[in-house]
């Protein structure tokens, strides 16, 4: 396909401008993580490593990071199981209420986080009498993560024909062997892309977390929220953000390599 040169040029300029728009604020975060002034004003005063050293010795931040990883991992695993089951059902069967099930899966992410937050908070505490804690956060996060897995896997199934599956079963494999040796390898990169997105959604989620975590559980976004406005801690928050952006390259690159085009989050 040929695209005229002027169109290409204009598009390139737009993309560069958008990249600048995306990266200038992040750049400021990086610079402020080395800024010796605590007020995060502009321009920065002088260079220091102090915040980086303090961040890696901050037990509150480190334990919050651990909590976030745990919550995101558990929520992703639950979402992987439930999302895959739902997509297998909706791909293989036509049934009454199929559209409704689709809407049901989409709803937790389509409704604003504060709605999910207060609805679950109200149900957990007033109606069920549960104590808010790690379990309620994981439950809430898993609920809105199901959709990312479901959509990735469902889109992948649409593009696969059932022929390989039928062939495996004709050759004597039972349904479970077929899933393990044929279907699962075909879905692997879709599961990875969906799982990565689910992990990211849970890892950065603050609104639903605020309503379902209670006082005992501190995820990283909650820790950031509590520390952002303290003069001593604000630069450390910048260090953590910088660190997360740099570390995030690893899973994104990994997904890109394994899944190719499909692993971009939306398959």
């Amino acid at each position: 396909m040929r695209i005229p040169l002027p169109v290409k040029a204009v598009l390139s300029i737009i993309v560069c401008a958008v990249l600048a728009f995306v990266y200038i604020p992040l750049f400021i975060v990086v610079i402020n993580s080395f800024n010796s002034s605590q007020s995060l004003g502009w321009p920065p005063k002088s260079f220091t490593f102090e915040w980086w050293i303090r961040a890696f010795n901050d037990s509150g931040a480190l334990s919050a990071l651990g909590t976030s990883l745990l919550v995101a991992a558990c929520a992703t695993v639950i979402a992987l199981i439930l999302g895959t089951l739902a997509s297998l059902a909706l791909d293989r069967f036509e049934f009454f209420g199929r559209e409704g099930v689709n809407l049901l899966i989409v709803l937790p992410i389509a409704l604003p986080g504060i709605i999910t937050g207060i609805a679950l908070n109200n149900a957990f505490t007033t109606m069920l009498g549960w104590k808010l804690g790690l379990l309620t956060v994981i439950t809430a996060h898993a609920t809105f993560c199901i959709v990312t897995i479901y959509n990735n896997v469902f889109a992948r199934m649409r593009r696969l024909s059932g022929n390989l599956r039928d062939a495996a079963m004709d050759l004597g494999a039972d349904a479970f062997t077929t899933f393990r040796l044929v279907t699962f390898p075909q879905l692997r990169s879709a599961l990875l892309a969906g799982g990565l997105l689910a992990f990211g959604l849970s890892f950065d989620e603050i609104i639903v977390t605020q309503f379902t975590a209670g006082t005992g559980v501190q995820t990283l976004p909650i820790w950031i929220f509590d520390n952002m406005f303290r003069p001593n801690q604000a630069p450390i928050v910048n260090v953590i953000a910088t660190f997360l952006v740099i570390v995030s390259i690893i899973p994104i690159m990994l997904a890109n390599r394994i899944g190719g085009k499909a692993a971009t989050g939306a398959a």
């Binding site: 995306v22 604020p25 992040l26 975060v29 990211g200 928050v237 953590i240 995030s248 390259i249 890109n256």
Partner: peptide
């Protein structure tokens, strides 16, 4: 793709605060 996915991992609050400083 990497360039547009990476900012997702800079915490939401930090990005909002970066805009505050801007």
């Amino acid at each position: 793709v990497v360039a547009f996915l990476m900012p997702l991992w800079a915490a939401y609050l930090v990005k909002a605060y970066a805009w505050r400083t801007i």
